[in-house]
Design a binder for these strands. Structure first.
Length: 150
DNA sequence: GCCAACGTTGGC
DNA sequence: GCCAACGTTGGC
């Protein structure tokens, strides 16, 4: 059992969208470090959903990993803006996991708030210029954020 | 919308 | 293998 944080731009796909659909293949990850995290995920792992590129970025709720990693079909689709012509079906380069909605926080845990938490002082999440869209969350971080979220 | 920071690509 | 150029991310 592990914990993760996944970023999304709500203009493209929000926690509310996930709630409406129930679950969703988390496709479009095109970063090797993030992909390697995807590959280490297990069914039942907890996920913080983080909204980026909004006036007040932060963690807005939770989801759960409901599949292990499998090839992301959008890498083979020339119509997709995640198309990767260098990837082949014989040796897929990019994976996804399926993620199910769990809860929306009554109180969002904003980036400003996360910066005040000692649990996050070493996290890439609060570092300037950080572009990692999937990152591991410690047990302490998980529980502390849930506490703040009310 | 701007732009700093970063990861990736490709010429050499 | 180096590194400049490029495209993208994400806070502001």
């Amino acid at each position: 059992m592990a914990y993760w944080l996944m970023k999304t731009e709500p203009d493209a796909f929000s926690l509310q969208d996930l709630q409406q659909r129930g679950q969703e293949p988390w496709d479009g990850i095109r970063n090797y470090q993030a992909r390697n995290f995807l590959r280490s995920m297990q069914i039942g792992d907890g996920v913080f959903i983080y909204h980026s590129r909004v006036p007040v970025p932060g963690i807005v709720g939770t989801a759960e990993v409901v599949s292990t990693a499998h090839p992301d079909p959008t890498q083979f689709d020339p119509q997709s803006n995640h198309y990767d012509p260098a990837s082949s079906p014989h040796q897929p380069r990019w994976d996804l996991v399926d993620v199910a909605y769990r809860q929306t926080f009554a109180h969002h845990v904003t980036l400003d708030r996360l910066r005040t938490m000692p649990e996050f002082s070493d996290s890439p999440l609060i570092r300037k210029g950080n572009r990692l869209s999937i990152l591991p969350i410690t047990v302490d971080q998980w529980h502390h954020v849930l506490q703040w979220a009310g």
